Computed example of a mutant assay.
Amino acid sequence: MKNQIKSGILGVCIGDALGVPVEFRKREQLKRSPVTKMRALGTHHQPAGTWSDDSSLTLCLADSLCNGYNLEDMALKFLQWYNAEIWTPHGRVFDIGIATRQAIYKVSKGYTPQLCGGTSEFDNGNGSLMRILPVLFYIKNFPIKARFDRIKEVSSITHRHIRSVISCFIYLEFLLEILNGAEKFEAYHKMQETVKYFLDYNPVCSQAEMDKFERILNKNIFEFDEEKIGSSGYVLHSLEASLWCFLNSESYSEAVLKAVNLGEDTDTTAAITGGIAGIYYGYENIPQEWIDVLVRKDDIEALCDTLFKKLQNN
């Protein structure tokens, strides 16, 4: 599992860093000048290899899990990052989603962590999906109901609406199949069966809400044409796009570059895609020149080692 933790978390960070310079660019612009390697400057004027809040919050979550499963500690780590005390690439926060900012403000005021996330339909940005990956390694041997409950709690620190929770659940159930050795299309179809069966017998939301996931759970998202795949900051767009990019590519680099070049929320789509592709293809499939330029690479790899040792001892 050590290699999978490292390849998954580094997969998130490198995908994120590839997307940071072109965040908010339109798909048409990127078709004319596609991203093919790590770039510097751009949207946020950052050096090459700089990651955003996506990776920062993923690393905060991994850091917290090194101390065991504690929602108060997770929320505190998010607050410490927001105050630029931990897990920034260069000592300051340059990017944060509205819902995440609002939730962290509640954390600072002492709210119960799993009640800090917004619950309206408009609180369904991708801010919990982009950081949820480390939870996979903690819950991988849990029964499915316990897996769902933990995912719901961790998502709810910033995103409490059931659509965000189910998006995180689908993502991690898909990754769990990959972690257990399934080929990618087999993993996708197993995830569909598992999630639909669970939600049929554990009604956590309305049918209308379930229908939002029709393209993922009842159809094959990878069969849709690119123009039918959204890449905004909406959680459902991010989930669909990451699955589509991964299932329609044959390597880590192809998957994350496909994600970046969809445009709009480039860093997050690539971070989420990168988590899947990293675990599936392995650390050795991530281009070394991208790893070498990644900001705080040694700190990230040390964190991955610590998390592995902690989980080994549980």
Rank of each mutant, 00 (worst) to 15 (best):
143 P>H: 12
143 P>T: 00
144 I>R: 08
145 K>Q: 07
146 A>S: 08
146 A>N: 10
149 D>S: 13
150 R>P: 00
150 R>D: 01
150 R>S: 08
152 K>N: 02
154 V>W: 07
154 V>S: 08
155 S>L: 00
157 I>H: 13
158 T>Q: 02
160 R>C: 09
161 H>V: 01
163 R>K: 08
163 R>F: 02
163 R>P: 02
163 R>Y: 01
165 V>D: 14
165 V>I: 13
165 V>H: 13
166 I>Y: 11
170 I>T: 03
171 Y>D: 08
172 L>N: 07
172 L>A: 08
172 L>V: 04
173 E>G: 01
173 E>C: 04
176 L>H: 14
176 L>N: 04
177 E>C: 03
178 I>S: 05
178 I>E: 01
178 I>Q: 04
179 L>G: 03
180 N>D: 11
180 N>G: 10
182 A>Y: 06
182 A>L: 01
183 E>S: 01
184 K>W: 06
185 F>D: 06
186 E>W: 00
186 E>H: 02
188 Y>H: 04
189 H>Y: 08
189 H>M: 01
193 E>D: 09
194 T>S: 08
200 D>N: 12
203 P>G: 05
205 C>D: 12
205 C>L: 07
206 S>Y: 15
206 S>N: 12
207 Q>D: 14
208 A>W: 15
210 M>F: 14
212 K>I: 02
214 E>W: 13
217 L>D: 02
221 I>R: 08
222 F>A: 11
222 F>H: 14
225 D>V: 02
227 E>W: 07
229 I>A: 08
230 G>H: 02
230 G>N: 03
231 S>I: 00
231 S>K: 07
232 S>C: 07
232 S>M: 06
234 Y>W: 10
235 V>G: 10
236 L>S: 03
236 L>A: 06
237 H>N: 15
238 S>H: 09
239 L>V: 04
240 E>L: 11
241 A>M: 02
242 S>N: 08
244 W>T: 07
244 W>Q: 04
245 C>K: 03
247 L>A: 07
247 L>N: 05
248 N>L: 00
253 S>Q: 10
255 A>E: 09
256 V>G: 09
256 V>S: 10
260 V>G: 12
260 V>S: 12
263 G>S: 04
264 E>C: 11
265 D>Y: 15
265 D>H: 14
270 A>C: 08
270 A>F: 15
271 A>Q: 10
272 I>D: 11
273 T>E: 14
274 G>E: 15
278 G>P: 12
278 G>V: 03
280 Y>E: 09
280 Y>N: 11
281 Y>D: 01
282 G>A: 06
283 Y>D: 00
283 Y>K: 03
283 Y>I: 01
289 E>W: 04
